[in-house]
Design a protein around this nucleic acid. Sequence first.
DNA 1: CAGAATCCCTAGGGATACTG
DNA 2: CAGTATCCCTAGGGATTCTG
Lengths: 123, 123
Amino acid sequence: MSDEVSAQLAEACPIVEVLDHVAGKWSIGIIVAAANGPVRFTELERAVEGISRRMLTLNLRKLERDGLLVRTVYPTVPPRVEYELTDMARELYESLRGLLDRAQKHRGSIAASRIAYDSGNAA
Amino acid sequence: MSDEVSAQLAEACPIVEVLDHVAGKWSIGIIVAAANGPVRFTELERAVEGISRRMLTLNLRKLERDGLLVRTVYPTVPPRVEYELTDMARELYESLRGLLDRAQKHRGSIAASRIAYDSGNAA
DNA sequence: CAGAATCCCTAGGGATACTG
DNA sequence: CAGTATCCCTAGGGATTCTG
Protein backbone atom coordinates (compact mmCIF):
# COMPACT_ATOMS: atom_id res chain seq x y z
CA MET A 1 0.00 0.00 0.00
CA SER A 2 1.19 3.44 -0.89
CA ASP A 3 1.38 6.77 0.89
CA GLU A 4 -1.60 7.69 -1.15
CA VAL A 5 -3.72 5.12 0.65
CA SER A 6 -2.46 6.28 4.01
CA ALA A 7 -3.45 9.79 3.08
CA GLN A 8 -6.92 8.63 2.17
CA LEU A 9 -7.29 6.94 5.51
CA ALA A 10 -6.09 9.94 7.42
CA GLU A 11 -8.80 11.79 5.62
CA ALA A 12 -11.47 9.17 6.14
CA CYS A 13 -10.94 8.16 9.75
CA PRO A 14 -12.12 11.30 11.54
CA ILE A 15 -15.45 11.08 9.79
CA VAL A 16 -15.97 7.47 10.66
CA GLU A 17 -17.39 8.89 13.84
CA VAL A 18 -19.79 11.04 11.86
CA LEU A 19 -20.63 8.05 9.72
CA ASP A 20 -21.45 6.06 12.81
CA HIS A 21 -23.96 8.73 13.70
CA VAL A 22 -25.49 8.74 10.28
CA ALA A 23 -25.17 5.09 9.38
CA GLY A 24 -25.38 3.56 12.84
CA LYS A 25 -27.88 0.86 13.55
CA TRP A 26 -30.54 3.13 15.06
CA SER A 27 -29.64 6.39 13.36
CA ILE A 28 -30.50 5.08 9.92
CA GLY A 29 -33.98 4.15 11.07
CA ILE A 30 -34.52 7.48 12.73
CA ILE A 31 -33.27 9.48 9.78
CA VAL A 32 -35.29 7.49 7.29
CA ALA A 33 -38.37 7.86 9.47
CA ALA A 34 -37.86 11.61 9.70
CA ALA A 35 -36.98 12.07 6.05
CA ASN A 36 -40.52 12.88 4.97
CA GLY A 37 -41.26 15.55 7.51
CA PRO A 38 -41.54 16.11 11.24
CA VAL A 39 -42.27 13.06 13.36
CA ARG A 40 -43.27 12.74 16.98
CA PHE A 41 -41.47 10.73 19.61
CA THR A 42 -44.05 7.97 19.76
CA GLU A 43 -44.20 7.72 16.00
CA LEU A 44 -40.49 7.16 15.91
CA GLU A 45 -40.76 4.60 18.65
CA ARG A 46 -43.16 2.61 16.52
CA ALA A 47 -41.41 3.25 13.22
CA VAL A 48 -37.92 2.25 14.23
CA GLU A 49 -38.59 -1.36 14.86
CA GLY A 50 -37.01 -2.89 17.91
CA ILE A 51 -35.67 0.33 19.41
CA SER A 52 -36.17 0.89 23.12
CA ARG A 53 -37.39 4.16 24.53
CA ARG A 54 -33.99 4.66 26.07
CA MET A 55 -32.04 4.12 22.86
CA LEU A 56 -34.44 6.32 20.94
CA THR A 57 -33.91 9.17 23.37
CA LEU A 58 -30.14 8.78 23.38
CA ASN A 59 -29.93 8.67 19.60
CA LEU A 60 -32.25 11.62 19.20
CA ARG A 61 -30.03 13.65 21.52
CA LYS A 62 -26.93 12.63 19.64
CA LEU A 63 -28.45 13.53 16.30
CA GLU A 64 -29.71 16.81 17.67
CA ARG A 65 -26.32 17.59 19.14
CA ASP A 66 -24.68 16.94 15.78
CA GLY A 67 -27.07 19.37 14.14
CA LEU A 68 -28.85 16.72 12.11
CA LEU A 69 -32.17 16.98 13.86
CA VAL A 70 -34.17 19.88 15.23
CA ARG A 71 -36.31 19.27 18.25
CA THR A 72 -39.45 21.34 18.63
CA VAL A 73 -41.49 21.28 21.82
CA TYR A 74 -45.10 22.42 21.71
CA PRO A 75 -46.15 23.51 25.19
CA THR A 76 -49.49 21.77 25.04
CA VAL A 77 -50.91 19.23 27.37
CA PRO A 78 -50.17 16.46 26.82
CA PRO A 79 -46.77 17.56 25.52
CA ARG A 80 -45.99 17.28 21.86
CA VAL A 81 -42.44 17.06 20.55
CA GLU A 82 -41.48 16.91 16.92
CA TYR A 83 -38.20 16.02 15.29
CA GLU A 84 -37.23 17.19 11.85
CA LEU A 85 -34.16 16.76 9.68
CA THR A 86 -31.96 19.78 9.16
CA ASP A 87 -30.79 20.75 5.70
CA MET A 88 -27.44 19.20 6.44
CA ALA A 89 -29.12 15.95 7.42
CA ARG A 90 -31.17 16.00 4.26
CA GLU A 91 -28.04 16.37 2.21
CA LEU A 92 -26.38 13.48 4.00
CA TYR A 93 -29.56 11.50 3.64
CA GLU A 94 -29.34 11.73 -0.12
CA SER A 95 -25.93 10.11 -0.10
CA LEU A 96 -27.05 7.63 2.51
CA ARG A 97 -29.97 6.79 0.29
CA GLY A 98 -27.60 6.00 -2.54
CA LEU A 99 -25.64 3.63 -0.37
CA LEU A 100 -28.84 2.12 1.00
CA ASP A 101 -30.17 1.47 -2.47
CA ARG A 102 -26.94 -0.10 -3.63
CA ALA A 103 -26.81 -2.29 -0.54
CA GLN A 104 -30.41 -3.23 -1.13
CA LYS A 105 -29.61 -4.17 -4.68
CA HIS A 106 -26.86 -6.51 -3.55
CA ARG A 107 -28.71 -8.17 -0.70
CA GLY A 108 -29.22 -11.37 -2.60
CA SER A 109 -25.59 -11.67 -3.61
CA ILE A 110 -24.48 -11.08 -0.05
CA ALA A 111 -26.87 -13.68 1.34
CA ALA A 112 -25.68 -16.16 -1.28
CA SER A 113 -22.06 -15.40 -0.52
CA ARG A 114 -22.65 -16.12 3.14
CA ILE A 115 -24.25 -19.46 2.46
CA ALA A 116 -21.39 -20.46 0.17
CA TYR A 117 -18.83 -19.32 2.72
CA ASP A 118 -20.50 -21.10 5.60
CA SER A 119 -21.03 -24.37 3.76
CA GLY A 120 -17.43 -24.26 2.66
CA ASN A 121 -16.22 -23.85 6.20
CA ALA A 122 -18.68 -26.30 7.72
CA ALA A 123 -17.27 -29.15 5.65
CA MET B 1 -45.99 9.41 10.00
CA SER B 2 -47.57 7.56 7.15
CA ASP B 3 -47.67 4.00 5.94
CA GLU B 4 -45.25 5.15 3.32
CA VAL B 5 -42.62 5.80 5.93
CA SER B 6 -43.23 2.44 7.54
CA ALA B 7 -42.79 0.84 4.17
CA GLN B 8 -39.50 2.62 3.68
CA LEU B 9 -38.29 1.38 7.03
CA ALA B 10 -39.32 -2.17 6.31
CA GLU B 11 -37.23 -1.82 3.23
CA ALA B 12 -34.31 -0.16 4.94
CA CYS B 13 -33.97 -2.20 8.12
CA PRO B 14 -32.70 -5.48 6.68
CA ILE B 15 -29.83 -3.69 5.03
CA VAL B 16 -28.84 -1.86 8.16
CA GLU B 17 -26.91 -5.00 8.88
CA VAL B 18 -25.19 -4.78 5.52
CA LEU B 19 -24.54 -1.13 6.14
CA ASP B 20 -22.91 -1.94 9.42
CA HIS B 21 -20.54 -4.16 7.52
CA VAL B 22 -19.79 -1.54 4.95
CA ALA B 23 -19.91 1.56 7.09
CA GLY B 24 -18.84 0.09 10.41
CA LYS B 25 -15.99 1.63 12.32
CA TRP B 26 -13.33 -0.78 11.07
CA SER B 27 -14.87 -1.82 7.77
CA ILE B 28 -14.60 1.64 6.33
CA GLY B 29 -10.91 1.74 7.03
CA ILE B 30 -10.37 -1.68 5.55
CA ILE B 31 -12.39 -0.97 2.44
CA VAL B 32 -10.72 2.36 1.86
CA ALA B 33 -7.33 0.79 2.35
CA ALA B 34 -8.13 -1.96 -0.13
CA ALA B 35 -9.78 0.33 -2.65
CA ASN B 36 -6.65 0.87 -4.69
CA GLY B 37 -5.67 -2.73 -5.15
CA PRO B 38 -4.68 -5.82 -3.20
CA VAL B 39 -3.24 -5.26 0.25
CA ARG B 40 -1.50 -7.59 2.63
CA PHE B 41 -2.48 -8.32 6.19
CA THR B 42 0.32 -6.35 7.76
CA GLU B 43 -0.28 -3.41 5.47
CA LEU B 44 -3.87 -3.29 6.60
CA GLU B 45 -2.78 -3.55 10.19
CA ARG B 46 -0.69 -0.43 9.76
CA ALA B 47 -3.14 1.40 7.54
CA VAL B 48 -6.25 1.04 9.65
CA GLU B 49 -5.11 3.08 12.56
CA GLY B 50 -5.86 1.72 15.99
CA ILE B 51 -7.16 -1.64 14.88
CA SER B 52 -5.99 -4.69 16.78
CA ARG B 53 -4.83 -7.85 15.04
CA ARG B 54 -7.88 -9.60 16.40
CA MET B 55 -10.37 -7.05 15.11
CA LEU B 56 -8.65 -6.92 11.76
CA THR B 57 -8.95 -10.67 11.37
CA LEU B 58 -12.58 -10.73 12.45
CA ASN B 59 -13.54 -7.92 10.10
CA LEU B 60 -11.64 -9.42 7.20
CA ARG B 61 -13.51 -12.69 7.69
CA LYS B 62 -16.84 -10.88 7.86
CA LEU B 63 -16.13 -8.90 4.72
CA GLU B 64 -14.94 -12.01 2.94
CA ARG B 65 -18.02 -13.91 4.04
CA ASP B 66 -20.23 -11.15 2.68
CA GLY B 67 -18.49 -11.38 -0.65
CA LEU B 68 -16.91 -7.96 -0.42
CA LEU B 69 -13.33 -9.12 -0.16
CA VAL B 70 -11.40 -11.93 -1.82
CA ARG B 71 -8.63 -13.53 0.13
CA THR B 72 -5.71 -14.96 -1.79
CA VAL B 73 -3.07 -17.07 -0.12
CA TYR B 74 0.32 -17.45 -1.78
CA PRO B 75 1.94 -20.64 -0.55
CA THR B 76 5.32 -19.08 -0.11
CA VAL B 77 7.46 -18.93 2.96
CA PRO B 78 6.92 -16.73 4.76
CA PRO B 79 3.21 -16.80 3.88
CA ARG B 80 1.72 -14.01 1.87
CA VAL B 81 -1.98 -13.21 1.93
CA GLU B 82 -3.65 -10.53 -0.09
CA TYR B 83 -7.08 -9.01 0.20
CA GLU B 84 -8.85 -7.36 -2.69
CA LEU B 85 -12.24 -5.74 -3.13
CA THR B 86 -14.79 -7.58 -5.23
CA ASP B 87 -16.74 -5.78 -7.95
CA MET B 88 -19.69 -5.58 -5.62
CA ALA B 89 -17.55 -3.99 -2.94
CA ARG B 90 -16.21 -1.50 -5.46
CA GLU B 91 -19.70 -0.51 -6.39
CA LEU B 92 -20.68 -0.06 -2.77
CA TYR B 93 -17.46 1.84 -2.22
CA GLU B 94 -18.50 4.43 -4.78
CA SER B 95 -21.64 5.19 -2.84
CA LEU B 96 -19.78 5.06 0.43
CA ARG B 97 -17.31 7.51 -1.01
CA GLY B 98 -20.16 9.92 -1.74
CA LEU B 99 -21.39 9.72 1.82
CA LEU B 100 -17.86 10.01 3.13
CA ASP B 101 -17.22 13.14 1.10
CA ARG B 102 -20.46 14.74 2.18
CA ALA B 103 -19.75 13.92 5.81
CA GLN B 104 -16.28 15.32 5.39
CA LYS B 105 -17.72 18.51 3.96
CA HIS B 106 -19.94 18.98 6.98
CA ARG B 107 -17.39 18.16 9.64
CA GLY B 108 -17.02 21.78 10.65
CA SER B 109 -20.73 22.37 10.97
CA ILE B 110 -21.13 19.28 13.09
CA ALA B 111 -18.29 20.25 15.39
CA ALA B 112 -19.77 23.73 15.76
CA SER B 113 -23.19 22.32 16.44
CA ARG B 114 -21.81 20.21 19.23
CA ILE B 115 -20.10 23.10 20.89
CA ALA B 116 -23.26 25.15 20.73
CA TYR B 117 -25.33 22.29 22.08
CA ASP B 118 -22.95 21.57 24.91
CA SER B 119 -22.52 25.16 25.99
CA GLY B 120 -26.28 25.54 25.98
CA ASN B 121 -26.72 22.56 28.21
CA ALA B 122 -23.80 23.33 30.47
CA ALA B 123 -25.37 26.62 31.58
C1' DC C 1 -46.91 12.14 25.78
C1' DA C 2 -42.14 12.35 26.20
C1' DG C 3 -38.90 11.53 28.60
C1' DA C 4 -35.11 10.70 33.02
C1' DA C 5 -33.19 7.41 36.34
C1' DT C 6 -31.73 3.00 37.87
C1' DC C 7 -30.35 -1.77 37.56
C1' DC C 8 -28.33 -5.32 35.25
C1' DC C 9 -26.29 -8.23 31.84
C1' DT C 10 -23.93 -9.58 27.65
C1' DA C 11 -21.12 -8.97 23.69
C1' DG C 12 -17.55 -6.06 21.57
C1' DG C 13 -13.14 -5.56 21.69
C1' DG C 14 -8.14 -4.74 23.91
C1' DA C 15 -3.76 -7.11 25.63
C1' DT C 16 -1.05 -10.84 25.56
C1' DA C 17 0.90 -15.20 24.24
C1' DC C 18 1.30 -19.12 21.07
C1' DT C 19 1.79 -21.42 16.07
C1' DG C 20 1.85 -23.22 10.95
C1' DC D 1 3.98 -13.35 7.94
C1' DA D 2 -0.54 -14.13 9.14
C1' DG D 3 -3.02 -15.60 11.89
C1' DT D 4 -5.51 -18.32 16.43
C1' DA D 5 -6.53 -18.75 21.44
C1' DT D 6 -7.37 -16.92 26.09
C1' DC D 7 -8.30 -13.74 29.50
C1' DC D 8 -10.47 -9.84 30.93
C1' DC D 9 -12.93 -5.58 31.22
C1' DT D 10 -15.85 -1.85 29.88
C1' DA D 11 -19.56 0.29 27.47
C1' DG D 12 -23.79 -0.53 24.80
C1' DG D 13 -28.12 -1.34 25.47
C1' DG D 14 -32.60 -3.94 27.44
C1' DA D 15 -36.27 -3.95 31.21
C1' DT D 16 -38.45 -1.52 34.53
C1' DT D 17 -40.03 2.34 37.22
C1' DC D 18 -40.97 7.22 38.08
C1' DT D 19 -42.43 12.23 36.54
C1' DG D 20 -43.43 17.11 34.43
